[in-house]
């Protein structure tokens, strides 16, 4: 067993765990995008960064790839970490505003501005599809190609791959392919609709009645119902 300190709390973790596993095991939440429990951690999106060590020598590391170490001091929500995550999400918003995952992250982390030129690059190069294809579907039909700004995910020579079985697992797991919900601001680069919501339950009770990270399920419901009824009519 490895003893480490997460947010001031002493935690016992198993040898070989990653920081993310230990953090989530004790119940803290760290946002992730390129992480998936069923796949090898890759550490591409950098959203899961945490601050380790003591200031001024502390540094940020991606918790999904960093192994637990004896005596390590970990802070999951230090100012430095929170600001870094917000900047990462702002970058993602500017390049892939159509992704629901990214919009949700923006609301969750309170990112309310985009200071970069908005583009529609779609793919975040998180590599979930690449790992899904190789590790779960055993196909190895797609992979990264090129590097730097030219990096992309593709089949060899951008051609139909003989290995591909059209299983669709890559699309299933893609965080950029999942389209945004039809919120009140569906066309805007930042939705932030969830942020505008006052929990319904507070109108009646003194406490919020549920602990979902992004609140609003109860509020959104009537709206969705409205839409559905509209659709049914037409």
């Amino acid at each position: 067993m490895v003893k480490l300190i997460i947010n001031g709390m002493e935690v016992q973790a198993e040898e070989g765990w990653t920081l993310l596993e230990a953090i989530r095991w004790v119940g803290f939440d760290v946002p992730t995008l390129c992480y998936h429990e069923g796949l090898t951690p890759y550490g591409a999106c950098r959203l899961c960064v945490v601050e380790i060590g003591k200031e001024p020598r502390s540094k940020l590391v991606s918790s999904c790839t960093y192994p637990v170490e004896e005596g390590l001091i970990v802070r999951t929500h230090s100012k430095r970490v929170v600001n870094a995550r917000k900047m990462i999400v702002e970058l993602m918003l500017a390049s892939s505003p159509q992704s629901k995952t990214v919009q949700d992250l923006a609301s969750q982390l309170g990112v309310q501005q985009i200071r970069f030129k908005v583009e529609h690059e779609d793919c975040l190069l998180c590599g979930l599809c690449v790992r899904m294809c190789a590790e779960q579907m055993m196909a190895k039909a797609i992979d990264f190609a090129f590097r730097g700004g030219d990096r992309k995910i593709t089949t060899p020579f951008d051609m139909k791959s003989e290995e591909c079985r059209r299983c669709g697992a890559c699309m299933y797991i893609c965080p950029a392919c999942q389209l945004r919900c039809d919120g009140p601001q569906a066309e805007q680069d930042i939705c932030n609709a969830c942020l505008q919501i006052t929990p319904e339950c507070l109108k009646t009770y003194d406490d919020v009645m549920c602990y979902l990270t992004t609140c609003g399920a109860c509020l959104k419901q009537p709206e969705t119902k409205q839409k559905e009824t509209k659709n049914n009519k037409s």
């Binding site: 999106c45 950098r46 900047m87 993602m92 998180c126 730097g148 030219d150 990096r151």
Partner: peptide, 8 residues
């Protein structure tokens, strides 16, 4: 020259 892995 960046390998392109880390988003940031």
């Amino acid at each position: 020259e960046s390998c392109g892995k880390c988003y940031t």
